[in-house]
């Protein structure tokens, strides 16, 4: 049976090179069908079977547009998450599914889709850029990546994260909990793109999507060489700045 990966709103959700996550999956799964759903189209997941739903980084106005399009499908998204469908929402895409997004400088305070109980504060003059390294229970190797964002997410620590940082900040500078995880839903503010930069995570996702026989990631040797080089660098204390520490 053909595997379907649905890429939501690629005409606006395409910042920071993150759509390479899907290019990479397409290389790993040449038999997969990539459905690119435009902003004014009805998502395939709303009525059909989709194996992975992906939403990438958006502008601030793009976030509001995405919320408007996803809101009618809130119950369906909740159902799909609870029934094990895979989701990958990267960078600020994850924030669309929270309870609120507040942006004082751009003068809005909007309700999110409301799948997760967290809120987002956007500070247009407080862009944070930093490295992140941490643990994810699906793989034994550390996850590595970058943050470059205007927003910080606040939530109760009980909401499970995608990963726990060992270096670098989590959802905000006061927590090691990064992103959000529920069943096979992964939301992370990491860019990189996270699957390309973390071949072991990509392999875990492939194995989860296609359990038997699990395909091997594409360009494995090159991807692992790049990952290993970055990991060596991230293990060097001298590469970390004080602002990349979790406070409090």
């Amino acid at each position: 049976m053909t595997l379907t990966i649905e890429m939501l709103f690629p005409e606006i959700a395409n910042l920071y090179g993150d759509n390479a996550n899907i290019d990479f999956l397409a290389r790993c799964l040449p038999q997969a069908r990539i459905a690119r759903t435009g902003l004014n189209e009805t998502p395939e997941f709303a009525s059909g079977k989709v194996d992975l739903v992906y939403l990438g980084p958006l502008t601030e106005q793009g976030q509001l547009r995405a919320i408007k399009r996803l809101l009618p499908h809130r119950d369906r998204i909740n159902h799909l998450i609870d029934s094990g469908t895979h989701f990958l929402f990267t960078h600020n895409a994850m924030e669309t599914l929270g309870s609120r997004i507040t942006n004082a400088e751009m003068n809005y305070d909007e309700a999110g889709v409301g799948i997760f109980d967290f809120s987002t504060e956007v500070g247009m003059f407080e862009r944070y850029t930093g490295k992140v390294m941490g643990t994810f229970d699906g793989v034994s190797q550390p996850i590595v990546g970058y943050k470059s964002q205007f927003s910080m997410v606040s939530s109760s620590p009980e909401i499970p994260g995608f990963m726990t940082t060992t270096r670098g900040i989590g959802r905000n500078p006061t927590t090691h909990v990064e992103g959000v995880r529920r069943h096979n839903f992964i939301g992370t503010s990491l860019i990189g793109p996270v699957l390309v930069m973390n071949p072991h995570l990509a392999q875990w996702l492939l194995s989860s999507l296609v359990p038997s026989p699990a395909p091997e990631i594409a360009l494995k040797e090159i991807a692992v060489a790049a990952y290993d080089a970055r990991l060596r660098e991230f293990h060097d204390d001298r590469t970390w700045s004080s602002f990349e520490r979790v406070s409090g």
Partner: peptide, 9 residues
């Protein structure tokens, strides 16, 4: 911080 995500842009 040297963020290499730009290469995919």
């Amino acid at each position: 911080v040297e963020n290499t995500a730009w290469t995919y842009d």
